[in-house]
Amino acid sequence: MAEIIVVTSGKGGVGKTTTSASLACGLAQRGKRVAVIDFDIGLRNLDLIMGCERRVVYDFVNVIQGDCTLRQALIKDKRIDTLCVLAASQTRDKDALSDAGVRRVLDELAADGFEYIICDSPAGIEKGAHLAMYFADRAVVVVNPEVSSVRDSDRILGLLASKTQRAERGNGAVKEHLLLTRYSPRRVASGEMMSVDDVREILGLDVVGVVPESPDVLSASNAGTPVILNGDSDVSGAYQDAVARLLGETVPMRFTQEPRKGFFARMFGG
């Protein structure tokens, strides 16, 4: 049985694609068979973050419209052989994705033996975002510690609880996880940024990961290497921990505290 995980947020630019790429890699590194799908039709990006942009021949919409088989469109990752990418189409046709088409592709992936299907949602609450979440078993809600991101994510929680197949059929709610990213422990300590506990309390969600703000994310995207594969980076460690928690392991939260300062600095803050 494949588990379908949507990575969603409402607000744009918060880190969904970065997160989708890293979670997919992390699960695949643990030997799971993983497919990661870009639902951002018209604004294909996941291929760049995964570093496979020059190998895209067919895309998600081609499969749905029957221009090719699913197998022809799946791009096998060169680094981890249990990982495949399905690119978004660059078409401007907003209706290119259909409910039945998406269902068929997901069913086919499951029948093919994929254990995890990660759906990288577009921003907003329109059709693309709706279809990305509709068939999900679990949702990773990506949030930045900032007012508009938190509010938008709460709207998404409302949709997950009402506009998904699980909600409509009443066969168990979509399991929701909070992934807080672009977190700055220094700014939290100085009272300029909401803490993990603040956001957890407002949204009432369990925290699957806290990813620090880091320049490593940009350099990873420049290189086309999902940041989780940059083992020297705190961001990589944070995503590894999130993968472990998704798999049901209990791991302590890291990277949420500022590195310890000397006595004087602690007394007088900063």
């Binding site: 900032e146 938190v150 509010r151 709460d154 009272g191 300029e192 909401m194 603040d198 309390e201």
Partner: peptide, 16 residues
């Protein structure tokens, strides 16, 4: 300012 943000969100989220 983080506390102000938290309070505002608590109210608006509850209302919505």
């Amino acid at each position: 300012s983080a506390n102000v943000a938290k309070e505002r969100l608590r109210i608006i989220v509850a209302q919505e």
